[in-house]
Every structure is written in C-alpha cells, then in structure tokens.
Write a protein that binds this DNA or RNA. Structure first.
Lengths: 218, 218
DNA sequence: TGTAATGTTTACCAGTCGGTCAAATTATCC
DNA sequence: GGATAATTTGACCGACTGGTAAACATTACA
C-alpha cells in the first residue's frame, strides 16, 4: 500500500539504488556549498530533478540525507591516511600522502567542502566520528611518525601538528578554491596550480622534515 | 519624526555607535558559525539582546549587516601580511608572520571563521575584495619573496604557494578548532596547542625554506 | 493480465524567514 | 518643561521552510 518508506523491504529495488544515488549526488552539490543550515530540501530536489516529496520518500528528513552523505564520504576521505605505511620509507610515505591528499582536493572538492562546512560550523553532526574513528586513526599514524622521528629517520617534530599541517595545506586548494583562483589570477586558473602546489608542498615538507646533518650546538 | 534611518544625520549619536557595535558583535557570533545563508536576523537579535525591528533600524538588511562586518574585519585581518617587511631578515620575517597569524587564529577565531565560511561558500559577497585589494597585497609580498629566493636568501620556491601554506596551516587552528580538539583529546585542549603549533610550524617553514648547503647535481 | 507493492505528484500545513508599519517610548536641546 | 527628533516595539506581511496526506501512476510478479 502506501506506508512502506523505501527501506522497509529487505532487498533494495533498482529504482531505489538509482534514485538514492541521484539524491545524494545532488545533496553533495548543495550541502557542500551552503552547509547544513543554509541548504534547503527544495534546492536539492531541483538539482536532483525530482519533486520535494519524492526526495522525502527516500530520505525521511533533511538530517537523514546529510547523515547518509557524511557516512558514505567519510570512509573514502580517510583512505589516504589509512594508506600511510609504517614500514615504508618515511620520505616516500609523506610525499605520497601529500600527493594523494592533493589529488583528492582536486578530484573531490565537494567532499572536502562538505566536511569543511561541517567542522567549521562546530561539527554538530559528526562530533562522534571526530572523537572516535578519526582520532583513533590519527593516534595510530602519529605514533608511526613519532617512532620515525625517534629513530632519526625524520626530524624531531610533533606528529599531530605535522598531520594537521598536511591536512590544512592540501585541503586549502579545495576549500578555499575561490580565493586561490582570485589571488593567482585568471592565467593560473587551469589545473596547473595543483602541479605547482604539489611541487611546493613536497619540497617544504621533505626539506622541512629532513634531519639536519649537523645540529648547531646549544 | 519617524523616517530617518540612523545614518541620515551627519553626526552619529552615542547610542548609534554603541548599538551598531553591539549588533556587529552579535552578528560576528552568528555569521561566523552559520555562514550568511544559515544565519537569521532573529538569532542575531537575540544574541544582541534587542528586538528584530530594532536591528533593522540600524542595518536595513541582513546583507548590510554582513557587508559592514566584512569591511570592518578585512582590514585588520590583512594586517600581519601588510607588516611583512621586504627589508627585514627573511627568516625573521617568515617566523614573525607565522607567529602573528597564529596569534590571530587564537585571539580572533570568529573573524577567521567568518571569512572561512564566506570563501568556502563561494565568496558571493567578497569576490571584489579578493580579486582587488587582497590580490594586490599578495602580489606585492610574493614579489618580495621571489627576490629573496633569487638572491639565495631562502630556498627557491613558489611564493604564492608559500603564502597559501602559511595561511592554511595557521588559520586551521581557528577554522577547524573542533577537529583539532577532538583529535588532540581533552588533555591538550588548553591553549598549549598554539604553543606546540607555533614550534612545529616555525621549524617546518624555516628548515623547509633554508637554502640547501649543497644542491645535488642535476 | 490482474493486483499488490512501489514510486510520484498535487495540494496543503504550521512554523520560520526577511522585512515593513504605525504607534509608543525615550533622548535631546531650546 | 515642551517640542522635536531619535529609538524601540508589537503586530503583521508574503515568501519560504521542513514535512505530511492522500490520490494517482507505475512497476514487479504470479
């Protein structure tokens, strides 16, 4: 009859898969620009090309759409950090991490902005994820870096702030894209800026973390 | 009689000054958290402790309030970059710039988030400022850095991306404060993280930009 | 092919949004 | 103290908000 709201059945219809995909795609468009509060279901419906009640047939509330989107994107988003390998060569690992994060900023800017908006506005919907899975993953990788530093493979440094600085510098090119373009001017607005950024950041972090041959006596 | 909307008289009343101050203070609170679209006049009115029509007596529209806030804050915000001195010692200048930006992130996080929200959402209200005054200032300082690099005082690097990286790493501690706290955990949530960040970033940038004693032959 | 489940839409609701208006209150200045 | 200008407020407006109800259309499947 009428009542069953999408997910009541055990198996998901082809239509359900397609439409939910379509909706989340549109939701990503809208939420990533305006944040949760600033976005409206009508906007998302229009981008998705369907009526508002139809959206609400697949996701009962605006919050459910947002939640669903966050869940789906978060895992992928942490992939580069997860790939950080304790057994690899430190310089290579750091270089790879920077490159991967930068590629994600280039290829998935909406995902980056979705999180940026959320965190910027106090992370009201993802506090648990930050304090749980995210913190655990960072703790684990920070320990790896700490060991590297202790073994003299890279310079002594605070591993947490190292991770923060890689996050911020790379995501900057997605989150603050408008500003970057404005400052670089029309000429540099192709994808070349990502190449330049990669070159600069790799140099900065590799040289910045290289162990000084001779420490000045203190 | 009724009509005169605040600024019609030549001289501004004491009350006008006070109330406008009070309103902008509240507006900063609200806009910096929710962005323009996500904020409501009612919220601002409540924080400011006055009625909505009273707010609209001083600022005709929500947009006018936002505009006014941006204008007032932008100048201050660029102060550290403006202080960047072409005649100073490169290492000292960079170190000072990092420290000043970090202090601003610590002392004026709302201002940082106000801009972050705005830029993140496509900078619909400050596009002109970005392409005009901001770009000009950055161009000027980038030239300074370029000359330093050419003279061998710091490593060869793209000055624009250097500036971007200093912006992003420092402002990260204001804009993504919730995330930083979540990852560092309760223990590190005092102001100590700014000290640690300063130490790390100064090391990273100074060592990362120091001219290599011997360049490997290429 | 029939029919039950699934999918879609129109019309609508109560609450909120930005903003106006006129009346009431307060400050200012002679 | 009174006239005049400045300030403040409650009541209100039309547009928009998230969300619902029920009728209608389509699909899957026996």
């Amino acid at each position: 009859m009428a009542i069953p709201r999408a997910a009541k059945t055990q198996r998901r219809t082809r239509i359900q898969e397609e439409k939910e995909e379509q909706i989340l795609e549109a939701a990503l468009d809208v939420f990533s620009v305006s944040g949760f509060r600033g976005s409206t279901i009508d906007q998302i419906a229009e981008v998705a090309g369907m009526s508002k009640p139809n959206l609400l047939y697949y996701f009962r509330t605006k919050e459910a759409m947002h939640r669903s989107l966050i869940d789906r994107v978060l895992f992928t988003w942490l992939e580069p950090l997860r790939a950080f390998d304790a057994l690899g060569n430190p310089e290579n690992e750091i270089r790879s991490y920077i490159r991967r994060k930068l590629e994600m900023a280039r290829d998935f800017p909406r995902e980056s902005r979705l999180f940026a908006n959320e965190v910027l506005q106090g992370a009201p919907h993802i506090e648990d994820e930050l304090k749980g899975p995210l913190k655990e993953l960072v703790d684990e990788k920070a320990e790896v870096i700490r060991v590297w530093a202790k073994a003299g493979k890279i310079a002594k440094c605070d591993p947490y702030h190292l991770i923060f600085s890689i996050w911020s510098t790379t995501q900057h090119y997605a989150d603050f894209d408008v500003q970057v373009r404005a400052v670089l001017g029309q000429g540099q607005s192709g994808e070349g800026r990502f190449e330049d950024a990669a070159r600069f950041l790799e140099q900065l972090f590799i040289d910045g973390l290289r162990v000084r041959a001779v420490e000045p006596a203190s």
